[in-house]
Every structure is written in C-alpha cells, then in structure tokens.
Amino acid sequence: MSAEIFSIVTFIYGLSVILYVAAWVFKKSFLGGLATWVTVAGAAGNGAGLVFRWIESYQMGIGHAPLSNLYESLVFFSFSLAGIYLFIEFRYKMKSIGVAASPLFFLAMAYASLPKVNSGIQPLIPALQSNWLIAHVITCFLGYAAFAVAFGTSLMFLVKPVDGRPGTGIIGLIPDSDILDDLTHQMVMFGFLFLSLGIITGSVWANQAWGRYWGWDPKETWSLITWLIYASLLHARLMRGWQGKRIALLSCLGFIAVIFTYFGVNLLPGLHSYQ
C-alpha cells in the first residue's frame, strides 16, 4: 500500500517541478497556483504514505516508526523538504523559489525508488530499538531540509548578476538579492537549531546505548563538520565584506557537507558494534 503511494508521490513531485519551471518561464499565475496545489497534494500523499507504512509495520508484527533505514529516511527527507518549502512559499508569497526547491524533493523520492535502495520494511536491530531514534531522525532531517532550501536560495543568489541590475530574461525573474539573502539566513538559522538538536539527541542516545556521548566515528564527525561550517557562516555574516556572495558560497559548502554526512560516510572506513 505505502509503496504504491510513494511511487505516485514521486510522479506528483515530478509534475510540480515541471509546473514550477513552466510558471516561472511563462509567467503565468494559474500555472503557479497549480504548481502549489500539486505540491500540497504530493506532500499530503507523502505524509499519508509514511503513516500507512507505520501501520503496515505493525501489521507485520515488527512495528516501528518509518525512520529506520536509508529508504525511509529519504522519504521522510522529501516530506520535510516539501513541507518547509510550502511554508516558505506561503509565508513569503513567492513561487520562484519552487524552481530551486522542487527538484530537491523530487530527486530525494526518485533516489529512494532506485532498485539499489532496499525499500522493504525490516525489523529493528537492537541498537535502533530506542525512542531516541524518532527524535534523532526527525530533528536531523528537518535540519537537512532547511539547509537544502538554503542551498536553493543560495544558488539563485549566485546566478543573479552582482551589480544589482534587474537582469534580463529568466535570470531577471529571480527574486531580489536582499530577499534571497534573508531567506538563506532564516533557513540556516532554522537548520542550525535542528541540526544542533539532531546531534544532541544522537549524543544522548549514544550515551544510552554505548556509554559514550561522542566517539568520533565518521558519521558523528561529519555531522560536526557540517555544524562547524554553518556556525562559521553565522559568524562570517558579522564580518565586513562577507555578506552576500561569500555567505551563499558557504551555504553551498555546508550543503555539500550535509550530503556527505548523509550518503558519503558509507564510503569511509568505520566501526559499528552491530551491523
């Protein structure tokens, strides 16, 4: 059941990407309205799918929140990203950010559908049997999602001409640099709070399971690296000459670290007590 819902959601998100781009290029407001509603439908389906998957796991007798492996985390990531994006769109009444944000939640769902990502509902191994799992995964991924939106706004900032001219063609449709800069800052603050919460809940959990709150294993360390990059971004804003472009670049660098924390760490040598 949830599996079918998720494939439909992937398709719907693909449609939102097309609609946001079309609305932007053709400057048609009905396309923009449609894009929003399609995305709302996708996000609702995404959330409902998670609830169904949760119920299914109980029906299988191995009930647990759908946050326990790569597949489930990607689906949840997509959901948080679409949710945060819609919140921003609603609050700032700006649809052009959707051009940068919708590919991100579409790609996360599309990646989850690849055959190499195991989509089965598996029981929880002993190390994951903890209520901290839910708090940890939700906070981390809300943080990642906010950083992803910040990445989108930073990219738009970077492709906009620097001299403040409105620009021509499609580039000219990008929102004001000031607004983008503000949005990036807001998203980074939100993300920083949630990444801090994610790292902290992870630490408390590790202390519960292994008797140490910090062990410098690659995943922990990469989350700290990400955190340090965003901390330096928050301070770089206070330095003269560091507003704008350099902040946008730091935000992109931070997001690369997010991606590496998420996917790349599996490429590194590491030790875990239980596989």
Binding site: W216, T221, W222, I225, L228, I229, S232, A257
Partner: peptide
C-alpha cells in the same frame, strides 16, 4: 571553526 571542520576530515 573552519580549521576545525577541515582538520576533522582527516580522522574520517
């Protein structure tokens, strides 16, 4: 902060 971030990579 950036030095800590960069050097931390070594140990991973």
């Amino acid at each position: 902060l950036l030095s800590l971030a960069v050097t931390s990579i070594i140990g991973t």
